[in-house]
Simulated scan of single mutants.
Amino acid sequence: MNIYEEMQDRAYNAGMNVIGYTFRNKTIKGLYCDGTAAISNNIDTNAEKACVLAEEMGHHYTSAGNIIDQTDEQNRKQEFRARMWAYNEMIGLMGIVRAFHHGCRSTYEVAEYLEVTEEFLNDALNAYRDKYGVYTTVDNYIIYFIPGLTVFKKE
């Protein structure tokens, strides 16, 4: 089972329907409404589909109402919460630690190991850096976000 199929199973278990959809606007990758996530049929990789579905699941768990108008500050906050939910679900701080234990040293290798797109990983790392600053600790590990992603085990 690939990562997208795993995420579909999780969505179904959460009471969501997941459908493939051909959007007229090619820039739209996914939408969530009333328990249904529509994922663009124009996405080529399972990793990208899984990332998009994770964000739509984030809306299922964290959003309420119509938030399409992103000029509204409250809608932008809900969009951010959904994205953070997706980042934590698909990557998380422990996912970064697991990737480094696996021998991953570049963002490309980390993204491949975690089965996410490199763009999604970089967006997550930027969000984590904004939240935690230069570094954060989790269990016995220090994760540095600046100058580049690095993990050290505390002795």
Rank of each mutant, 00 (worst) to 15 (best):
N75H: 14
N17D: 05
I3E: 05
A64G: 03
F152A: 04
V138I: 15
T62F: 12
Y12I: 14
D130H: 08
H102W: 12
Y144Q: 00
E109N: 06
A124M: 14
R76Y: 05
L31K: 11
D139R: 09
I3G: 01
K77P: 02
A111S: 14
E55Q: 15
Y135V: 02
E119G: 08
I39A: 01
Y108N: 09
V18N: 09
E56Q: 14
A64N: 12
E119C: 10
C104E: 10
T36P: 05
K26Q: 07
D72S: 11
K154W: 04
V52H: 04
Y135P: 00
S63G: 08
D139F: 00
Y4L: 06
T27E: 04
I146D: 03
A50W: 08
E6H: 03
F152W: 03
E119I: 09
E79V: 13
I39P: 01
V97N: 02
G30L: 11
N13M: 14
E89K: 15
G35Y: 07
Q8R: 10
N88A: 13
V110W: 05
F120P: 04
W85F: 15
N41Q: 10
K77C: 05
E48T: 05
G65A: 11
E109Q: 14
Y132R: 01
I142Q: 09
V138D: 00
G95F: 12
L125A: 02
M84P: 07
H59C: 12
N122A: 10
N13I: 02
R129N: 04
H60A: 11
G58N: 14
T71S: 15
T137V: 05
N75I: 08
A11N: 06
R24Y: 06
N42T: 15
F100C: 00
F80E: 12
S63H: 11
E55Y: 11
A54Y: 15
Y128S: 08
Y32I: 04
M84Y: 14
D72K: 15
T45I: 06
E89P: 05
K77S: 07
N140E: 12
S40T: 04
C104S: 15
N75G: 09
M57T: 11
Y144V: 03
E112G: 01
N2P: 00
G20V: 02
F145E: 03
N122G: 03
Y128M: 12
F120H: 09
N66A: 12
A47C: 12
H60N: 15
E115N: 14
M7K: 13
M16V: 07
E5H: 00
N122Y: 05
F145R: 02
Q70I: 09
T27C: 02
N42L: 13
E118F: 03
I28F: 01
R10F: 07
W85I: 12
Y141A: 00
I96Y: 00
T136M: 04
